Simulated assay, not measured.
Amino acid sequence: MVQFEQVRHRPPTPLAAPRELVVACAPMRSNVNLSTIMRTAGCCGVERMIVCGHARIDKTIARDGADSVRLEVRNSLAPVLRTLREDGYRIVGLEQTTNAVRLADYPFPRRTALVIGNERAGLSEAELALCDDCVEIPVWGLPYSYNVATATAMALYEYCRQHPS
C-alpha cells in the first residue's frame, strides 16, 4: 500500500500575471461580510477591491487578504462603474435579475469588474443600469438568496476556475 504525505496549508500557486479582476462593492451593512469578501478576494489573487460607504475591515477576519488586496474606499458605486468601463472592464453584477445568466453558464471575460450589492437591497436600479451583464446563483430553498459573502466567494471561485492563471 502506497502512503501519501499530507501537507497542510500548501503555499499558494503563483499567478503568471496579476488578475484582471476588480471587486466593487456597494455600501455593506456588515463589516463581517466585507471582511470575509476581502479575505476571499485575497485567496483568489485579486489585487484591487473598491468599496463604497463607511467601509471598515476587521483584520482578524480578513487575515492575509487584508495585506494582499488594495482597498479603495469611494462614496458611491455609479462613478466607480463608469470609470471601470472606461478602463476596459466588463461590468458584471452579482444579482438576481430577469435577464441574469446562471453563474455556471457565464463565460467571464478576463478583464471583469464583479459588482456586489448591499446585503438587503442588492444593487440599485441605477447601478444595474451600468452593468453589462448580471450573473445569479440558483437557489433551491429558502431564503431566496445566499449570504453576500458566500455568493461572492462562489462567483470569485468560478472566475478563477475559468481563468486559472
Rank of each mutant, 00 (worst) to 15 (best):
P18L: 06
L21N: 10
L21F: 08
L21W: 09
L21R: 04
V22S: 05
V22N: 07
A24V: 11
C25Y: 04
C25N: 06
C25E: 03
M28C: 07
S30P: 03
V32A: 06
L34N: 01
S35G: 09
T36G: 11
I37D: 05
I37G: 03
A41W: 09
M49P: 03
I50D: 02
I50S: 03
V51E: 01
C52A: 13
H54V: 01
A55D: 03
I57R: 01
I61T: 11
I61K: 01
A62L: 04
G65W: 05
A66Y: 12
S68K: 04
S68T: 14
V69E: 01
R70P: 00
L71G: 02
V73L: 06
V73R: 15
R74T: 02
N75W: 10
L77S: 05
P79F: 13
V80L: 07
V80H: 10
L81T: 11
L84T: 08
L84E: 07
R85S: 13
D87W: 10
D87C: 13
Y89D: 04
I91F: 07
I91Q: 02
V92F: 10
E95W: 09
Q96V: 15
A100I: 12
V101N: 01
V101M: 12
V101D: 05
A104V: 14
Y106K: 01
P109S: 12
